[in-house]
Design a protein around this nucleic acid. Structure first.
Length: 708
DNA sequence: CAGTCCCAATTTTTT
DNA sequence: ATTGGGACTG
């Protein structure tokens, strides 16, 4: 197959560029993913670059997987197995597993997520005798993360800290890093920060990687932060074959430390750079592209770039001014149900600014019966039971993991409560031990009740039994064993509630995830699986092939496309978000986010806002987003106004008859029937009724149902 | 020590 | 509006 036949001239130039620094400015929908995959294929096939000598960095695991699949399809033979493709975090984690010992990071290090980090920091606050109210863990962590993203370690931070608050943060930063080191744990951002450290302290390791990676490719370069910039720069230094792809108009992660300057200043960093612009959009209709361009044109300081498309003009954009959030969601649900004639659910997505907005859509989708998936929000891996089980396994693998220890020592309840735990902590600290280690000598803990001592011995035994199998047994088997042996299953079965069984289901799901992981990667060790878990996201497990409508935030939608997109909640304060007003450049970033959202749509774009928005349980009038005004008016189909509220949503205070199972009822259309099931209460109740013509589930808020 | 109740904070966005 | 954490009680 001729790789180049399907490419336009600039795409072709990008793919065949011989070497040296290459900046590809790729507008939305200009086929950049394709160009990257083709370029890798070209390097492998035409230029004979060994797969093992190519490094490709993507923004999400999903993108990594797609690139791998795509290149394999182009070149064949699973050639990408030897290639390094992954997110920055993945790549760095891999490097640290191999060479982390050079900077004092043990091979079995665990990766701490937000929750774990918070727990560690709280511990530090306590140890330093600081008040959590004055120094909320979340706020302090934000300071620390920000520093880490800017490649500032605790030493450098202490040196530049000014003012009382920052000096306290500096002390906390130091204690925090020490605690992490003690537990052989890395905070998420440490994965990145530790690599430049490693490269500094072990130059021969650095050189090894520099020599190895003949070609370095980076996707979504506009969203790299300072550390990532440093890593890329270092890795590509030897061969200078650095190809970065990005779009400054789609930089939406500044809050995470992303620095658009990385892309804007690329030409300054590499004066001999070749710049290629991809300006033809293959994704959207002319209307959609023009509307998005109209919005983004309001931003200053952009790389000059004019997107165009040869696609059809398409429909005008729809705009709906809803009465409130419920009404907005109702419109979307009804519209999706209507569009279902001709389109699949999976071709449609609802995008919103904040996760909290998802619930309204969920309600309405349930009402209309639209299958959906929500990406983000309460993530599977953040569910309590899942985290608990993982904590057991992490602790088995890494006995020094105090955060995991504290998490599970009393789950299920073992009679070792806060008081005992505090005494244990004191004992551990006095002996310089980890908590689990301290627990092996329960007699050393002051005033530990007899029952607690016995529980301690049992717990230590349990962990030893798990630990004993860690290296011998597959992760899946170990998980199954842990569910039972920890007593977790018994505890949940004992509760007997639907919720408890749901949690048990989630644990089984985790076993399935491990099975799939083993199946796709061939890795069966617990260590590999835990690392995988720490780095996967909701988006990565998002199933495109299932026919469901997608609900997600605008941020999650980056890099995706849908035939139909609903962009909801276009209100001042929500989108652009109120927080954006406080920061210099905040509104510009929101505008880019809007641009990203709009350009996800291929055929149809729906915009909506609510006149009344409920936040924190209080409803306030909302003003249409400025972004709506920035779209050329002639591209928007005249708005439909919301009907009066009574017609669209049942009044929450309305009197609704209540029914019990077995009641005889009458429905205007279905006649008489008998109630089989009642879920919820009041206007929100859903009753299942057997009528002569069949069983129906009805929402009491809508259904004209009376006592017979 | 565990269960219950009450209050506060949450809602920006995520690898 | 929901949820988690902290205080209080049994």
């Amino acid at each position: 197959m001729d790789l180049l036949a399907e490419l336009n001239p600039p795409q072709r130039d990008a793919v065949t560029h011989p070497g040296g620094p290459l900046l590809i400015l790729a507008g939305a929908g200009s086929g950049k993913t394709r160009v990257l995959a083709y370029r890798v294929a070209h390097l492998l096939r035409e230029r004979g670059v060994p797969a093992a000598r190519i490094l490709a960095v993507t923004f999400t695991n999903k993108a990594a997987k797609e690139m791998r699949d795509r290149v394999d399809r182009l070149v064949g033979g699973g050639i990408t197995r030897a290639m390094w493709i992954g997110t920055f975090h993945h790549i760095c984690s891999r490097i640290l597993r191999r060479h982390g010992d050079r900077v004092g990071i043990g091979r079995n290090f665990v990766i701490y997520d937000d929750d774990d980090q918070r727990a560690v920091l709280r511990r530090c606050l306590k140890d330093l005798g600081l008040d959590e109210r004055r120094f909320p863990p979340g706020v302090v962590l934000a300071f620390i993360d920000k520093a880490k993203n800017e490649a500032v370690d605790h030493v450098a931070y202490a040196a530049q800290a000014t003012g009382f608050y920052e000096e306290v943060v500096a002390r906390l930063y130091r204690a925090y890093q020490a605690a992490l080191r003690e537990a052989n744990a890395l905070a998420f951002d440490d994965l990145l920060l530790s690599v430049p450290q490693l490269f500094r302290e072990a130059p021969e390791v650095c050189e090894e990687y520099q020599e190895r990676f003949a070609h370095v490719l980076v996707d979504e370069y506009q969203d790299t932060n300072r550390v990532q910039y440093l890593i890329v720069k270092t890795l590509a230094e030897r061969h200078r074959n650095l190809c970065v792809v990005g779009d400054d108009d789609q930089s939406i992660y500044r809050w995470r430390g992303a620095d658009v300057r990385n892309i804007l200043d690329f030409e300054r960093d590499y004066p001999d750079v070749t710049v290629i612009k991809l300006e033809q959009n293959y994704r959207s209709t002319k209307s959609i592209l023009a509307a998005a361009s109209g919005v983004i044109a309001h931003n200053p300081h952009r790389h000059a770039k004019v997107l165009w498309t040869g696609n059809a003009p398409g429909d005008l954009l729809s705009f709906y001014e809803a009465y409130d959030g419920h009404d907005e969601a109702r419109m979307v649900a009804d519209e999706i149900a209507r569009l279902r004639d001709g389109l699949r659910y999976r071709d449609m997505a609802v995008l919103y600014r904040t996760n909290a907005q998802s619930r309204l859509f969920e309600e309405q989708f349930l009402r209309v019966g639209i299958p959906y998936t929500i990406v983000g929000g309460v993530r599977f891996y953040e569910r309590k039971e899942v985290r608990d089980l993982i904590a057991y396994l992490r602790l088995a693998l890494n006995p020094g993991d105090d955060a995991s220890f504290s998490r599970v020592i009393n789950v299920p309840r073992r009679g070792i409560g806060d008081v005992s735990l505090q005494r244990l902590e004191a004992f551990a600290a006095s002996g310089g031990m980890g908590l689990l280690q301290a627990l092996t000598r329960p007699e050393g803990v002051a005033e530990l009740p007899k029952a607690a001592q016995r529980a301690a011995t049992d717990f230590v035994g349990l962990l030893e039994r798990l630990r004993d199998r860690v290296l011998r047994v597959r992760a899946t088997d170990l998980l199954e064993a842990a569910i039972v042996e920890t007593g977790y299953q018994q505890m949940l079965e004992g509760e007997g509630t639907d919720e408890a069984y749901g949690r048990l289901e989630n644990l089984r799901e985790l076993v399935t995830v491990a099975q799939e992981f083993e199946h796709t990667t061939g890795e069966s060790t617990l260590e590999a699986f835990l690392q995988h878990l720490a780095l996967v996201t909701d988006l990565d497990t998002w199933q495109e092939d299932v026919d469901r409508a997608t609900l997600m935030t605008l941020h999650s939608a980056k890099g995706l496309e849908f035939a139909v997109v609903f962009l909801a909640g276009l209100e001042e304060g929500l989108f652009p978000h109120a927080r954006a007003f406080e920061e210099e450049g905040g509104v510009e970033e929101e505008r880019r986010l809007c641009y990203v959202g709009m350009t996800r749509a291929k055929q149809r774009l729906y915009l909506s806002h609510a006149r009344n928005r409920t936040i924190f349980g209080t409803t306030a009038p909302a003003i249409a987003s400025r972004f709506l005004d920035e779209i050329p008016a002639e591209l928007i189909a005249r708005q439909q106004k919301a009907p009066p509220p009574e017609a669209v949503w049942p009044d929450e205070d309305r009197e609704v008859p209540s029914f019990a199972v077995g009641d005889h009822v009458r429905h205007a259309t279905f006649g008489e029937g008998r109630v089989l099931e009642v879920e919820g209460e009041g206007v929100r109740a859903v009753v299942t009724v057997r009528f002569a013509q069949g069983v129906k589930r009805l929402a009491l808020g809508y259904a004209p149902l009376q006592r017979a």
